[in-house]
Amino acid sequence: MPPAAPRCSPAASNNALHWRALAFDPKVLLLDEPLAALDAGIRQQLRDEIRSLQRACGATTLLVTHDQDEALSLADRVAVVDGGRVLQVDTPERLYTQPVSSQVARFVGHSSVMQGRVVGTNTVDVSFAILYADTGAFRPGDKVDVLVRPEHVQPDPPETSLNRLAGRRTEVRYFGATCRYDFIPDAARQPLLCEGRQLAEHTIAIAPEHLRILAA
């Protein structure tokens, strides 16, 4: 007979095979890529079960993964490590919305990062446009990176919108509930990644509060 499930296992789970390698009432769980090579449906189910198990046990859990969805959905705190160096340790929300560097921003989630230069208070030149954003402690002349997440790009905004950019839409990727697509502003060399149910036709806008200025 397979061993009984550990006493801290969630009541909803009755598959003892899930717990075959776990000790009774563990104080620490060490999980190294536990969901690798699984299809999307099973990965989602087991992700929820691992989270339920961790909460039921109250055990400190160290999860190593290359899957950003796993890290952000399972963890209370996430550490981004590159080449043995810890770049940032934070809550999933702060890691996504307030990355401390362009390297973290590119690693966590989807984003577009534009090179720019501060030209005035809350004003940044990104070569193809002057954008309004909170420049914080940066001073005129400082080289910076300007981060925007794809879901914060507004398609075909009113003409009075700040940071309104004319251009053209190119590649579109369909994901069912949403689409990701590229939009190349006039005079820009690289496209901006956009996401939403509505696709931009000729213009986009990015509200100043959705632009994050980072050290270059």
Rank of each mutant, 00 (worst) to 15 (best):
W19E: 08
R85N: 13
D82L: 14
L31G: 00
E195H: 08
M114C: 08
L22I: 00
P3K: 15
T121L: 15
R20Q: 04
C8P: 03
P3N: 12
R169M: 09
V89W: 15
I204A: 03
Q54T: 04
T97P: 03
T65E: 11
L53P: 00
R169I: 08
L131M: 13
L214I: 00
Q54E: 06
C194L: 10
V172D: 15
R173N: 08
S127K: 15
A56D: 12
A200N: 06
S73F: 07
V86F: 14
A129P: 03
R117N: 00
R117G: 04
G58A: 07
R43E: 02
V172C: 13
G141W: 10
T160D: 13
V28E: 09
E159S: 09
V104F: 04
V148S: 02
P92V: 05
R77Q: 15
C194K: 03
G196D: 05
D142A: 04
R212G: 01
A129L: 10
Q190L: 15
P10T: 07
V148E: 10
E171H: 13
I50S: 00
V89H: 11
V119W: 00
Y181I: 00
E171R: 01
H66I: 09
R169T: 13
R180I: 02
E195M: 14
L199H: 05
F107Q: 05
L63H: 11
T97R: 14
R164D: 07
E195A: 14
V126L: 14
E49A: 04
L211N: 04
E209V: 06
D186Q: 15
A71L: 09
F107H: 07
E171L: 10
I42N: 12
G120C: 03
A11N: 08
Y96D: 03
V80H: 14
N163E: 03
K143P: 00
P140Y: 11
F175K: 02
P155W: 01
E33T: 05
G84K: 11
A188Y: 06
N15A: 12
L87M: 15
L87H: 10
L30R: 08
Y132Q: 11
D186E: 15
V153D: 11
R94C: 06
V86K: 11
S111P: 01
C57V: 03
D76I: 05
G83I: 01
G58M: 08
Y174D: 15
D142T: 07
V64A: 15
H18F: 09
A215I: 02
L31A: 01
L162Y: 07
F183V: 11
G109C: 01
H66R: 05
G120Y: 08
Y96A: 06
L192N: 13
D67Q: 07
V146Q: 07
Q88D: 08
L74H: 01
G136S: 12
L53M: 11
P34S: 04
A36I: 12
R20N: 13
L35I: 04
V89I: 15
Q45V: 04
V100A: 13
E195Q: 14
E159F: 00
P3E: 05
